[in-house]
Design a protein around this nucleic acid. Structure first.
Length: 651
DNA sequence: CATCTCACG
DNA sequence: ACGTACGTGAGATGC
């Protein structure tokens, strides 16, 4: 009740203070050793208590907390820091929750203490006391996105062992379709409670203060609530996982995967900043030349990066035909349109060249060096394990899963990704993992046969569709078959295929018909995926991760169509993700047994390693073995391995 | 902060 | 008749 009142009235300092005065009394009782809430039987059906939280300002206090954690055998941890990037963050305070409704806040770097007589414990002393507990694998650690704590504690020389629950990961496994997996969102959903938001304690905009400036009492309530809610959610979500039979996979795969990702993030990848600087100059000169040519052609200067200005130039000044509209009804100037307009005028092609170069320069060449960690001299991405609804990872700050490769200029950026001195890059790629899963799931004899014999799958598909022997398949036929194979995985439609191929819908339709004549069980499988998802309400992967698809029940043709494509694509894309995750866990564990080699990136179906030359052979074999053996399918799983002095060479 | 565009699998 | 390929993140522009 107090919480609700506090929230609705906004951040009222006076009101907050009286609330805190009341709480302070209980804290005092606890400090005096009356037992407080700890001795009472906590009512787990309450939402968030808010009254059994204590500030820890003394060594004795901290010792009591540590005893409590040892008593309960578990602790939910929430660190307050100076940065969302755990590689750069400094600890401001630590919330520890050893049991539901009982939490403690240990400030270590707050600036505004209650009064001059208030002293907080120093960070070295606190970490010194907590280290044995944090490293004790028999004390269960609970958290919301605990990879953050793992990476950050590692920066302080503490190894976080005994991760027993991550609420974010659990919620994603139960329902990967959510937009947000924030603690606040999960708390609202599963506990029916709105939490104090970060903004409530720090303010926003101009008057925003850093967490170090937040008063101890406000920091305590905010931070302890986070730790407490994670503890409460862990119990709730654990029951849900158990009911669905997912607890084992959750523990054996999802939880273990956290540490693998943390290690990759900590390892980071080296980039040749000098090489990128050279590329920047070169691209700059190229952009200038293209600009000049375009401005001469058009007759005046404008901002090529502005779609609005470009629209005016192409469709008003040059009077070129308008091909398609954007979502908001404006004339599109995207790559498809510009390619098409290239046959009428020299400018569109030049604009495309400019776009490509400008994109590469701003997004990669100029941006990446700024993100090099000054301590390590390397790039450390952040992998988000709940970043997609299929179960794939996403990567950000920087995104290292979309480094260019398709064009020659792009590959030059990849050349700047280099191994440490004395090491080589090793890249291991799953070959056609999604089509192999399609063969496995559908049981289609033709598709299985193609993979059993190790043939070029697109060539094989082309030969089937066009009714010629594989040696008579032309590059055009193969390209078309490749598009169909992709289309099948995406949830094919004649319209989509036609657009991709640049043919008519009726021609695309005839290709699809021919495909399904040859691969009949693929059609059956697609239909079964959709009907299964319809009856269950969700699609699932080989590990049982669930993606609800409410669109399947929609009356809207588009929404329903989207739902159907989702129903057939998710088990394939998601299971491919499951398989590489399993491989990564095994490889991580084997690397830990005395190798110098490091796993440094995952790009959906590729793993990148930094390997000392004398480990190349053994690591190649080990990586292949673990990737190919991660899951048993009815067709072989094949991995292609390359090595080189940079990422471009290794790929 | 939305829009457009484009980098990747 | 209608609109559709699956999954992401980021930079630049302009309100």
């Amino acid at each position: 009740m107090e919480l609700e009142k506090f929230r609705y009235e906004g951040f009222d300092k006076a009101g907050l203070r009286s609330l805190f005065d009341e709480l302070e009394f209980k804290n005092l009782l606890r400090e005096l050793g009356d037992g407080g809430g700890a001795a009472e039987k906590p009512d787990e059906n309450r939402t968030v208590p808010y009254d059994d939280y204590s500030l820890i300002l003394t060594e004795d206090g901290l010792d009591r907390v540590i005893r409590r954690i040892k008593e309960t055998g578990e602790v939910s941890i929430d660190l307050e820091t100076t940065s969302t990037d755990p590689m750069l963050a400094e600890i401001v305070g630590i919330a520890l929750c050893p049991a539901p409704h009982e939490a403690y806040y240990v400030p270590v770097a707050h600036r505004s203490l209650a009064d001059s007589s208030t002293r907080q414990l120093g960070l070295p002393a606190v970490l010194g006391k907590l280290k044995p507990l944090i490293e004790d694998e028999n004390l269960r650690k609970i958290g919301q996105n605990i990879k953050y704590e793992f990476v950050l504690l590692e920066m302080y020389g503490l190894g976080l062992n005994g991760i027993s629950f991550d609420t974010m990961i659990a919620a994603h496994m139960l329902d990967s379709s959510r937009i947000s997996y924030s603690l606040d969102e999960l708390c609202r959903l599963y506990l029916g409670h709105s939490m104090i938001s970060y903004k409530d304690v720090t303010g926003t905009g101009k008057s925003k203060i850093n967490f170090e400036e937040v008063e101890l009492e406000a920091a305590k309530v905010y931070s302890c609530e986070d730790a407490d809610v994670a503890m409460l959610l862990a119990r709730k979500l654990s029951r849900e996982l158990e009911e669905l039979g997912l607890l084992r996979v959750y523990r054996d795969v999802e939880l273990r995967f956290i540490e693998v990702l943390a290690r990759i993030e900590i390892n980071g990848v080296k980039v040749d900043a000098g090489k990128l600087r050279e590329l920047s100059k070169e691209f700059e000169a190229g952009l200038k030349d293209i600009e000049k040519a375009i401005f001469e052609e058009v007759g005046y200067e404008f901002n090529l990066n502005s779609p609005i200005q470009l629209r005016q130039v192409l469709f008003e000044t040059l009077r070129l035909p308008q091909k398609k509209l954007t979502k908001t009804g404006e004339s599109s100037t995207d790559v498809e349109v510009l390619n098409d307009l290239s046959k009428f005028h020299p400018v569109p092609e030049k604009v495309l060249e400019h776009r490509t170069l400008s994109k590469l320069k701003s997004t990669y060449v100029d941006a990446l060096p700024r993100l090099i960690n000054p301590r390590t001299g390397r790039l450390h991405t952040s992998f988000n394990p709940v970043g997609s609804s299929t179960g794939r990872l996403s990567s950000s700050d920087p995104n290292l899963q979309n480094i260019p490769i398709k064009t020659a200029q792009g590959r030059r950026i990849r050349e700047a990704f280099i191994p440490e001195e004395g090491y080589m890059m090793l890249s291991a790629d799953y070959s056609q993992i999604e089509l192999r899963l399609l063969a496995h799931f559908s049981g289609d004899e033709s598709l299985i046969e193609a993979f059993m014999t190790g043939s070029d799958i697109h060539n094989r598909t082309a030969s089937e569709i066009f009714g010629v022997t594989p040696d008579l398949v032309t590059p055009d036929m193969r390209r078309l078959a490749k598009n169909i194979n992709f289309g099948i995985i995406y949830g094919i439609s004649a319209f989509g295929l036609a657009k991709q191929l640049g043919t008519s819908v009726s021609i695309a339709k005839s290709y699809i018909d021919e495909y399904f004549k040859r691969y009949g069980k693929v059609r059956d499988y697609i239909e079964k995926s959709i009907s299964d998802a319809k009856s269950k309400g969700y699609a699932e992967t080989i590990l049982g991760r669930r993606r609800p698809i409410p669109e399947l029940a929609s009356d809207d043709r588009n929404r329903k169509g989207f739902g159907e494509r989702t129903a057939m694509n998710t088990p394939i894309q998601g299971s491919a993700a499951d398989i590489i995750n399993i491989a990564m866990i095994r490889i991580h564990e084997r690397l830990a047994s005395g190798f110098k080699s490091r796993m440094i990136l995952q790009v959906h179906d590729e793993l990148l390693f930094e390997v000392p030359e004398d480990e190349l052979d053994v690591i190649s074999r080990m990586v292949r073995e673990e990737m190919e053996g991660a899951w048993k399918l009815s067709v072989p799983i094949v991995v292609e391995i390359g090595t080189g002095k940079n990422w471009a060479e290794a790929h």
